[in-house]
């Protein structure tokens, strides 16, 4: 189990790094899907099977497919890929990289202060649903409004 966690973590990390250095959009998307699926595995390991399934179905499935459709609509060809290669110069990475290294050090510094081991307790669909439609009902309604707004906005923006 613990091995599975580290393995999935390594896969997610590698896939994510491949996303941000890839020059081909479709390749990057596939790497991203892999990364998301790996995260789904981690969720499962952490005892959140419902979240894991949603990660696989909604994130890796629906959202990424949406990406893919749009990429096919735009039909970015070889020219874009060459462009990407020209843009991805190493010196471009220095400044942001340093800054982000500092940020990472800070985050880790905060996170490693307490040594607590997690014993995963499985939280099933039932408990989650009770919470969702109990105390979090308002948040659920708001989320639905957000989705509706996103729908309308996307329809309007993508219109010719």
């Amino acid at each position: 189990m613990i091995l599975l966690f580290y393995l999935a973590g390594a896969v997610a990390l590698i896939a994510t790094i491949s996303v941000i250095v890839s020059t081909n959009v479709v390749h990057a998307l596939v790497y991203l899907i892999i990364s998301l699926l790996a995260v789904a595995v981690i969720f499962f390991v952490l005892g959140a099977p419902f979240a894991a399934m949603l990660e696989a179905i909604v994130y890796a499935g629906a959202i990424m497919v949406l990406f893919l459709f749009v990429m096919m609509m735009l039909n970015l060809g070889q020219a874009t890929e060459d462009e990407e290669k020209a843009w991805l110069r190493p010196q471009l990475w220095v400044g942001p990289g340093l800054l982000i290294l500092v940020l990472l050090v800070q985050l880790v510094n905060v996170l490693v202060t307490q040594q607590v081991d997690v014993v995963p307790v499985e939280v099933g669909v039932r408990e989650l649903s009770v919470l969702l439609f109990g105390p979090w009902l308002l948040a659920v309604e708001l989320a639905s409004m957000l989705l509706l707004a996103g729908l309308i906005a996307a329809y309007h923006l993508a219109k010719k």
């Binding site: 189990m1 613990i2 966690f5 580290y6 973590g9 997610a12 990390l13 994510t16 790094i17 996303v19 941000i20 959009v25 990057a28 990364s35 995260v39 981690i42 390991v45 952490l46 990406f67 990429m71 735009l74 970015l76 874009t80 462009e83 990407e84 843009w87 991805l88 471009l92 990475w93 942001p96 990289g97 800054l99 982000i100 940020l103 990472l104 985050l107 880790v108 996170l111 490693v112 307490q114 040594q115 607590v116 081991d117 997690v118 014993v119 995963p120």
Partner: peptide
């Protein structure tokens, strides 16, 4: 058991990877 902070550190690393992507890429899809 899984060390709690290892999960958080993984999340942090993934987060900064995304951040690097935002900062360095010029393609809006990326």
């Amino acid at each position: 058991s899984i060390p709690y902070e290892h999960g958080l550190i993984l999340a942090a690393i993934l987060f900064v990877c995304g951040l690097i992507g935002v900062l360095t890429r010029r393609n809006i899809v990326f």
